[in-house]
Amino acid sequence: MFSIEHDFDATVVTLVDEGARHLQEDVVISSFEDCVTVEQYDPRSDTLQRITLSLSQMGDLVTAVNLPEGVYRRKA
């Protein structure tokens, strides 16, 4: 399950892990004007882990999802 919210300065997507097996914590993806952040609570360290991607990195990730194994460079 996931939700999408449009805030003043960001679009926020929350991914909820559903199922009978061991569940992971929710993942929150926030898309800003100049970057994308991915956050997930880590219960082992009791901290919120955050990764910040540039828009170029995010574009590479989106492109990579459907490609076979290899090394690629997107055309500008």
Rank of each mutant, 00 (worst) to 15 (best):
L61A: 05
T52R: 15
T47R: 13
E33W: 10
K75H: 04
S56R: 14
I29K: 07
R50S: 11
V62F: 13
V12Q: 08
D42N: 14
I51H: 08
Q40E: 13
E39L: 08
D17M: 01
N66P: 06
T47Y: 05
T63W: 05
A10H: 13
E18N: 09
G70E: 11
F8P: 12
V27R: 04
G70T: 11
F2G: 09
S54I: 09
I29N: 04
A20G: 15
V27I: 15
S31V: 15
D7Q: 15
G70C: 00
L67A: 04
D60T: 01
T47Q: 14
D46Q: 13
P43I: 00
Q40V: 09
E25V: 11
G70W: 09
T52C: 11
V36I: 15
T63Q: 10
S54A: 06
M58R: 00
L48F: 03
T52N: 12
A76E: 11
G70F: 03
E18P: 04
V12P: 00
E39G: 04
S3A: 05
S3M: 10
V65M: 11
D60A: 14
D42I: 02
F8A: 08
A20F: 06
V28M: 04
R74D: 03
F32D: 00
E18K: 10
H6R: 14
L55D: 10
E25S: 10
E33H: 14
L61K: 06
I4V: 15
T11H: 01
F8L: 11
R73C: 09
R50A: 04
V65P: 03
A64H: 03
F32H: 13
N66Q: 10
G19C: 11
I29M: 11
D34F: 06
V65F: 09
R73N: 01
T52Q: 15
Q40D: 04
P68L: 01
Q49A: 08
C35W: 08
H22A: 14
M58I: 00
E18H: 05
Q24Y: 07
I4E: 14
E5I: 12
L53C: 12
N66M: 01
T63L: 02
N66F: 05
Q57R: 05
T37E: 13
F2Q: 12
V62T: 02
E33G: 00
L67W: 04
V38M: 15
G59I: 00
F8R: 14
E18M: 08
V13Q: 12
